[in-house]
């Protein structure tokens, strides 16, 4: 059986009852966070771009920022019957893609800040993180098969590998 594919673009949040394959394509400095409630069988994914919402601008898309994206993902999952205390998560991304050139070091380190910000949200909200593949210089494609619970990561140079299963055991 081929699962429906749900492409999670930049700043997007997607939620569904278990079944679809969630995909974040080519995560650079962005973070993909997959979440699953194994009891309610509700799954979701958010594609976070930046650590925190701008103080002087209204939030156009809550999925864009770590501090709004993670809570919104949980809220949307709750509407489908998920309970925060049961939600398991996995995250990938936060790389520094531009790694050659003067001043590249430190200048575009937004990837690391994104990873820290998402992790802070995960902790603050009391979520259990079962898998994490962040940092480095490589862009990643992250998939979450909500049917099997498997979270996988692939890069341009490495084969797809399993990060963890959100089905619990």
């Amino acid at each position: 059986m081929v699962a429906t594919q749900l492409l999670v673009g930049m700043a997007e949040i997607q939620v569904a009852k278990e079944g679809p394959l969630f995909v974040c394509l080519g995560l650079g400095s962005c973070i993909g966070l997959a979440a699953y409630d194994p009891v309610a069988k509700v799954a979701g994914m958010v594609h976070v771009m930046l650590p925190a919402a701008f103080a002087d601008k209204p939030v156009d898309k809550p999925g864009k920022f770590a501090d709004t994206g993670v809570p919104h993902l949980l809220e949307q999952m709750a509407r489908l019957g998920a309970s925060r205390s049961r939600i398991l998560v996995a995250m990938a991304g936060g790389a520094q893609v531009f790694n050659f050139g003067t001043g590249s070091a430190g200048k575009l380190d937004i990837g690391r800040r994104n990873a820290d910000a998402v992790e802070a949200q995960v902790q603050a909200l009391g979520l259990r993180c079962l898998g994490k593949d962040v940092g480095g210089n490589q862009g990643r494609t992250m998939t979450f098969d909500s049917g099997s619970g498997l979270v996988k990561v692939r890069t341009v140079t490495s084969m797809e590998r399993a990060l963890c299963s959100l089905k619990g055991s």
Binding site: G26, M49, N99, I110, G139, R140
Partner: peptide, 23 residues
């Protein structure tokens, strides 16, 4: 301004640029 180079998946490179643009 001085150029930066990345060798990566096309989407990852464009995402990093869009991210800068967003800020």
């Amino acid at each position: 301004t001085p150029p930066l180079l990345a060798v990566e998946m096309a989407a990852a490179i464009l995402q990093a640029i869009v991210l800068e643009a967003t800020t």
